[in-house]
Nucleic acid binder design. Structure first.
Lengths: 208, 208
DNA sequence: GTATGTTTCAAACAACTGTTTAGATTTTCG
DNA sequence: CGAAAATCTAAACAGTTGTTTGAAACATAC
């Protein structure tokens, strides 16, 4: 039922899932290759090293993300009227949702991944994204600029990163939060509902 | 110049610093005991295991934090008039600042630590804090309730955790952010300034 | 068919991990 | 003082880590 997937993809899938819920250092190549049902040595053969495998996991998943993001951003960029802050922030929702759905196993793997990457590599990940995905970041921020034209550049920078923190941190820990919420308020929420609750919070903060 | 510190404290200091900037799994007991200038076996002798050492590091630092927090919270609790949201949030600033100062080496170690703990232990840390420090969390939230009396319980819960995420995430990565800001805007900011910039953002989001 | 290049495989590698042991040293206190 | 308890130390333990190796299996093209 799965012999169609290449060894490389099987490794990437297994690694992505395991990195997300155990962490990078806590996941051994043997655990990955066992789950992927491939030989241990194939990681080094196809990717060179564990470090490169980690990078490959990230690149694959960021690539997917910006492809989705592009589709959301384009119509707003082409609109004649300036978008609202809420509209701009909303371009993130659908990419996040659709990537969450087509994960085979458990949900919000990739957000946990992002959370880990930010926490574990003290700034390295921030710089990596600003180097390799600067284009999309700029498109996003320039729409934010249209939405809030009288906000100074440096203020913009800070509030953008405040928002980034809130989103990643919340989604990375969303499983735990959903559990607590379910226990305390008998309220069971979906990822989408969490996002919809998050957006007004962000927008208000951003416009503060 | 440092023979006064007990072995236990030397280990805790070294472990705290190393955990903060490398992570838990990435820091070996040998690295810790080398920096602390103590024998390798003394970690197991004094703490039992590496896991227990990690817990000990957290308990020591959370203990200090809530002691500071208590001093800030008390006068607000005794005030006859309801505090503002900003006032309540401000109770966090001074504890964070003073703990940042009396770290000997580099700054904001403990915030990186918190960030790591949240990211690496998938919800475990969130639950730990809600079990062991529920008292202080409740005092804090009940003041928030006074400040925003017409906010439903579950909404409160979510926005509280949104704010928590923003604070921890921002401060955990503050070194990297300060660097980028310095490079891009020739603006050099202190931790205190970042906090002061963060508070209005949080307050606005909370009141959204 | 043979030859060529790619991919898989089991086994071994050296380095490092947390933990334990048993003996020396120091501290505590009657 | 001197016995008992606490602490420190070097060495070894068993297990795991990422990586390398050389031969086997496979694929592709002539």
């Amino acid at each position: 039922m799965s012999s169609k997937q290449s060894t490389k993809d099987r490794i990437l899938d297994a690694a992505e899932a395991l990195f997300a819920d155990r962490g990078f250092a806590e996941t051994s190549l043997r655990t990955i290759t066992n789950r992927a049902d491939v030989n241990l040595a194939s990681v080094n053969y196809h990717f060179g090293s564990k470090k490169s495998l980690i990078q490959a996991v990230f690149n694959r998943f960021l690539q997917k993300f910006v492809t989705h993001l592009d589709k959301e951003l384009t119509p707003i960029e082409q609109g004649l009227d300036a978008p609202s802050v809420e509209q701009v922030l909303h371009t993130l929702v659908k990419p996040l949702m659709s990537m969450d759905k087509d994960r085979h196993e458990g949900s919000s793997n990739f957000m946990k991944l992002l959370g880990r990457a930010y926490a574990e590599s003290q700034g390295h990940m921030r710089r990596f994204m600003q180097e390799h995905y600067a284009h999309y970041l700029r498109r996003f921020t320039s729409q934010l600029h249209r939405a809030a034209p009288n906000l100074a550049n440096n203020e913009m920078f800070w509030r953008l990163h405040f928002m980034l923190g809130t989103v990643i941190f919340t989604l990375a820990g969303s499983d735990a939060l959903h559990e607590i919420a379910a226990a305390d308020f008998k309220e069971s929420v979906t990822l989408e509902q969490t996002l919809e609750r998050l957006l007004p919070f962000l927008a208000a903060g951003f416009k503060s």
